[in-house]
């Protein structure tokens, strides 16, 4: 039997942590951070370095002793999205590491941007620091940067109590009994379904009620492939169905046939839900299904 491999954990950590003497330039930057301000340092050439450096990387000269407040807002120049933050990262949720050029600065600062979603990140995104309440003079005094407010959500909700009205109520009474009620205009003789009280062509009141059969002809239709939570499952066929004896088509669902076999001119009949399930609603009609008769001339 082979001997077990020898493994042991070992931690190397200077007790209490190393110190870092900041020097006057970095020290000023961190002191200002603790006060909730961000400053950069000017170079002899007039550039403002943020975060500050002690020596100008362009010339090797010492920077000037002049500090300038920058930001607090800035612009994202580039970023990398962190979809699975690790221990030690500034945020526990997905975030971006970004190069942020603060307003008034000539260089970019690396920091986290709490944007919620990678799609919210783009070059030019305007961001602002989110400060910690308790600050110690550390770069993490800025918890992260967050995008500026560019959009709010404005919930609008209107609640109604809807009554069907006299004519629709009458039509639904018929539907509850399993029949389609229409009406005939006394002036032009056209038969309308659903039942209505006036003629849209003549403008006169309609008084003659007509009972229509539940058979008809598909005049035209669409095959709907776009899912919508309020509509039937796709693909569904919404068809204009001219009930026998009526002069205006109704829009209804076509079923019991694959969508691509539906034809203009196809003869159909309403498929009703069982009598015990019926209410005063169009949901009494499951759909219209082919009768098997020869197609009608359109």
């Amino acid at each position: 039997m082979p001997s077990e491999e020898l493994i042991a954990d070992h931690v190397l950590e200077f007790p209490g942590g190393y110190t870092r003497t900041t020097g006057p330039v970095i020290g000023r930057f961190l002191t200002e951070l603790r006060d909730g301000r961000i400053v950069g340092v000017r170079t002899a050439g007039g550039r403002t370095l943020v975060p500050p450096l002690e020596y100008d990387p362009d010339t090797g000269e010492a920077v000037t002793g002049e500090f300038a407040e920058v930001g607090p807002a800035g612009t994202v120049e580039s970023w990398a999205w962190v979809s699975e933050p690790r221990k030690g990262h500034p945020l526990e949720r997905p975030f971006a590491w970004a190069l942020i050029r603060l307003d008034g600065a000539d260089t970019a600062l690396v920091h986290a941007v709490d944007a919620g979603d990678a799609r919210a990140m783009r070059p030019g995104l305007r961001v602002r620091p989110r400060w910690r309440a308790e600050r110690t003079g550390h770069i993490t005094d800025i918890e992260s940067f967050v995008p500026e407010v560019t959009r709010i959500v404005s919930p609008v909700r209107a609640e109604y109590r809807v009554k069907p009205g006299k004519s629709l109520a009458r039509f639904l009474e018929g539907v509850e009994r399993g029949i389609f009620l229409g009406c005939r205009c006394g002036s032009c003789g056209k038969v309308y379904v659903p039942y209505r009280l006036s003629c849209p062509e003549c403008g006169v009141a309609i008084t003659e009620e007509v009972e229509l059969p539940d058979t008809g002809t598909i005049t035209t239709f669409a095959i709907n492939n776009l899912p919508d939570p309020r509509a039937p499952q796709v693909p569904f066929v919404s068809a204009y169905i001219l009930l026998d004896g009526s002069d205006i088509p109704m829009i209804a669902l076509v079923g019991d046939i694959p969508a691509h076999e539906v034809r203009q001119g196809m003869r159909v009949r309403a498929v009703w839900v069982p009598e015990e399930e019926r209410t005063a609603s169009m949901s009494n009609i499951r759909w219209f299904a082919p009768t098997g008769e020869p197609d009608a001339e359109l």
């Binding site: 709907n224 919404s238 829009i251 203009q264 169009m282």
Partner: peptide
Amino acid sequence: LSTHLPFSASLVVGAGGYFAPHIREYMR
């Protein structure tokens, strides 16, 4: 465009759903 009031069937979804049958009829 599709507020789907009570009592009626929810079938037409948006402008495309409304105009498609009329385009089909033109083609025929």
